[in-house]
Design a protein around this nucleic acid. Structure first.
Lengths: 127, 127
DNA sequence: CAATGATATTCAGAATGTCGAATATGATTA
DNA sequence: TAATCATATTCGACATTCTGAATATCATTG
């Protein structure tokens, strides 16, 4: 019988897009706003929003508004297990290093340009 | 960037069909002929053949002819890791028990009807 | 309430996937 | 080589997905 495999196949289908994998990979480090994802992936905002909707409809992520921004987070961390397994199977052992933490994020919206940073300068991040 | 995720997304896409998951689940127990899969899943032969082609084109399975029959086997056992992860994530912990070994397989082609089996009867299987 | 910033939705054409029906292929046996 | 068995391929209708363009929504600020 085939029907019992439907839920798993549906989950695979949701994950079967490079943009969605990249988004989840970013969300792996915690809640992020859309503009952050936009800056990281250099994809159009509407495009990202569409993929976020797919992930949300699948129950994989949830959103939360804070002022102007919508913050997305992963609801089902088990998907990371699936992703790790596929990275291994596809011969891509490491999920790809994301060159950043919030501090190094080049997102022009998340970090309104503070000008060039001097060597030795101490930056205090609000947490 | 998104491109590095393409291979993983492609693998997900290949796995994103209940029939293909069911087929792989059967092949997990070792090489099997098409007629066996046909009998187990009660799906049309041409339909199964189409899905086997998808799996073969993806490099997940390989085929081998032996007389009349084509035997399929899994080339990349890592896919089972991916499947197990998705079963867990989809809340389907066990891959579904397959009611069989070759001995109990109801496949009418693999096991040309030997008639009813008496209690206590010893069946010798060629290996 | 008007303007603005962040994000979401709708629309449409192209591309791709699904799956049944019919038919083809290729090995084997008579 | 003709018949048969197991399996593969092709065709076609239909559904779904992808993705860019345009536009809408919604909270915030002035």
């Amino acid at each position: 019988m085939i029907k019992p495999y439907q839920p798993s196949a549906d989950l695979f289908k949701t994950l079967a897009h490079p943009a969605r994998l990249a988004i989840l990979s970013i969300l792996r480090e915690g809640e992020q706003c859309v503009c952050h994802i936009e800056a990281m992936l250099k994809l159009r905002q509407a495009y990202i929003s569409q993929h976020l909707k797919v992930l949300k409809d699948a129950g994989i992520v949830s959103d939360r508004r804070d002022g102007w921004n919508m913050y997305y987070r992963v609801l089902r961390p088990e998907v990371f297990g699936v992703m790790d397994a596929v990275f291994t199977a596809a011969g891509q052992p490491e999920p790809l290093p994301h060159a950043h933490a919030r501090a190094e994020c080049p997102c022009p919206k998340c970090h309104p340009d503070p000008g060039p940073v001097d060597a030795g300068q101490v930056i205090l991040l609000s947490e």
